[in-house]
Simulated scan of single mutants.
Amino acid sequence: MSYEFWILLTGSLVGLSCGIVGCFLILRKMSMLADAISHTVLLGLVMAFIVSQSMNGFYMLIGAVIAGLLTTFMVQLLNSGGIQEDAAIGVVFTSLFALGVILISIFAKNVHLDVEHALMGEIAFVPWNTVAVPLLGNIPKSVVMLGSIFIVDIVVIVLLFKELKLTSFDPSMAAAIGIPVLIVHYILMGLVSVTTVSAFDSVGAILVVAMLIAPGATAYLITDRYKVMLLLSGGIGVLDSIIGYYGAKMFDVSISGAMAVAAGLVFLVVWILSPRYGLLSIWLNQKLTHE
């Protein structure tokens, strides 16, 4: 496989997994929690390194899940205590991220784990860091991890499809019929955490946040159907990655940055042209109503 293929595949896997998981955050009106988790997992990564003294991906995933769940728990704790959700997210996000930065400077100075790397990543190096896979040969490590997490995401979403749907649209009804709303919520936050950290090394937190929010928000403007939104969001995430890669190649800029910009541009186009919720459609309807 070519160098370009592996980069496109990596970006597409990020778009797919983040796009699908991000749909639930959009439906639950928790988009900014994605930003918080994508940054606070840095604390989980450095804590996993301090405990294990290893950069092994398994320990990193465990640390990320713990950090993601801790973020969610602290936000809910503050919110239930009377603090507005946006303020709670802001306090928890900045505090835990700053703690992670401090711990890196103290305990991980000489380790390949730094703030800039966590935020920006470097997808251009993905094809060179390979791992041997039976029957498939040498495959980029990021592709293996992202592919594995994508499969986990799909399996969990399929198994909890009804529960995730009900708790997203009507949590009160879900609780009334016996669905453990809080457990489902923490399972979803766990998915967000592992999906985020699986993309950290290759694309960084900035692109992860963009892919968690922009594809789902774009799909939301196109359809009101739950299943269609999930499929569209994954497809839009892949489209954003492809457009971003060739845009980066054309202008010789950061690949991850270009993919994030592409996600924003695709959202902007759909926001203007969406047949039901687009600015143009709303303007035409208002004009016809006044006439």
Rank of each mutant, 00 (worst) to 15 (best):
I187F: 02
V131M: 09
M32A: 03
S254T: 09
I282Q: 15
V155M: 04
K141H: 11
V253A: 04
L268H: 12
T223L: 04
A217D: 10
D201N: 15
A219K: 00
A199I: 01
A64N: 11
L45S: 15
Q286I: 09
I106W: 12
A258G: 12
T40W: 00
V228I: 12
V115N: 10
T10Y: 02
G216T: 02
L159T: 05
T195D: 06
L230P: 15
I187D: 06
I282M: 12
V75S: 00
A176N: 14
N285M: 12
A88D: 08
N138T: 04
A174K: 03
S31H: 03
G204E: 07
A48C: 08
A67C: 05
L146F: 00
I272C: 14
V144L: 02
R276V: 05
V270F: 01
F49V: 02
M32H: 10
L13E: 07
A263K: 04
E122N: 04
G137C: 01
A176K: 07
K162H: 12
M1T: 10
D86W: 00
E122T: 10
G15S: 06
I179S: 13
F107Y: 11
M229I: 07
A263V: 07
M211L: 05
I102T: 10
L25K: 05
I206Q: 05
V92N: 04
I282G: 11
D86M: 01
S241N: 03
V156E: 08
N110W: 01
I66Q: 08
F73Q: 00
Y59W: 15
S12E: 08
V21N: 13
N56W: 11
V197R: 02
F97L: 14
F93N: 13
L279I: 10
L13T: 10
V158A: 13
V197E: 08
I50W: 03
V75A: 00
L99M: 15
L78C: 00
M47A: 14
K287T: 06
F251H: 09
V14W: 02
I243E: 07
L232A: 12
G244C: 04
